[in-house]
Design a protein around this nucleic acid. Sequence first.
DNA 1: CCTACCGATCGGTAGG
DNA 2: CCTACCGATCGGTAGG
Lengths: 178, 178
Amino acid sequence: MRDIARELDLQGGSLYAHIPSKEAVLASIVERAAERFHQAIQPIAQGPGSAAGRLRRMIDAHVRVVASSPQRAHVFLFEWVSLGEERREAVSRSRDAYEEQFTTVIAEGIASGELAHDDARMAAVFLLSAMNALAHWYRPDGPLGPEAIAEQYADLFLHGLGRGITDGSATATAGGSP
Amino acid sequence: MRDIARELDLQGGSLYAHIPSKEAVLASIVERAAERFHQAIQPIAQGPGSAAGRLRRMIDAHVRVVASSPQRAHVFLFEWVSLGEERREAVSRSRDAYEEQFTTVIAEGIASGELAHDDARMAAVFLLSAMNALAHWYRPDGPLGPEAIAEQYADLFLHGLGRGITDGSATATAGGSP
DNA sequence: CCTACCGATCGGTAGG
DNA sequence: CCTACCGATCGGTAGG
C-alpha cells in the first residue's frame, strides 16, 4: 500500500481517504479485468459461425486480452484467490461462467458432429489452462505476437499433433490468421 | 515460520537451530519436487517407443506426480519465483531442461513424420501449461483420477478436437490406459 | 490529505 | 532448544 501511495505522491495513510481497504482495491482490479475477458469472448461465443470457427476467434480474443496486459491478466487469473471469502466466491462464479462459454461452444461442435471428444468441459479446462499460462511467460518484446500464438494454440487445440485430415485452415505454413 | 515451528512443537526462534533461513527451506522443497518430476519423465523420454507412445506415458507420469501431491507440485511449479535470484535461476534452468525433454520427443515425432506441427517447443509449452494447471484445481476426492485425466489430456494433445484419422489408441470410450 | 501513531506480525539473533 | 528481544514492515485510524 505504501508503494501505491508513493506512486501517487501521497503519504501511506492518506490512501485511505480514497479507498476503503486494500482488499477493495484488489477486488476492483480483478472485476475490471474479468469484464475485459467477458466482453471480448461473449459476442463471438453467442454469435454465428461454425463451432471450430468461433473457437478460433475466441482463442484469438482471449490471447489478445492476456497479451494486452499480462500483469492485469495475472491478477485476474491467479491473484483473485487472495480475496476474502465473499468476493472470492463471486469471482469464482464469474470464472465458471466464462469457462462455460467455451464449454458450450465445444459441446455444440460435438453435438453437430463437427468436433470429436467426449468431455466438453475437460476440453475447455485444457484449453483455458494452456492459454492462461501465457500470463506467466508472455513478454511483449518476445519473438511471437499474440496473433501468432493464438493461431498456433488454435491449431494445437483443434487438430492436436496427430496427422489427421485437416480442414485446410490449419497446420499450414503459419501465415495469415483469422 | 512460526506456523512451521508450532507444528514441530518448537518456539519460533528455535527453528533456526535447524535451518539457515526461510528461503533455504523453500529451496529444499522446490528442489526435491523437481527431482520427482525429472525422475518420473526421463526414463520414458529417453527410452524406446514411438514418439506418440512416449508422450502418452510422459503425460501419464507428469499428471501422476502432480496428483500425488498438488500442494508440493504447486510449490515447485509456481512458488519457486519467490526464491532469491541465484536459486531462482538454478530452478529456471532445471525447468528448461524438463521442458526440453518434451520438446525433444515431440521434435523426434515430427522429424519421423509420426506427428505434425511446425513448432515443437510451442507444442511442449502448450502441453505443460495445461498439465501444470492441474496443481491449481486437482482434488484427490474429485470425480476423475489421475489416469483418466492423463488419458484425456493425451487424447486432446495428440488428436485435438478435429475429426482426423485416429490411430486407434485414442478418443475411444475412455477405458483402460497405458 | 498530513501527522502521528496503533497493534500485529515478520524473519531472524544473542546468549544461555 | 528456550528466553527474550531486535528492527522492519504491515494494513489501517484518530484528529486535525
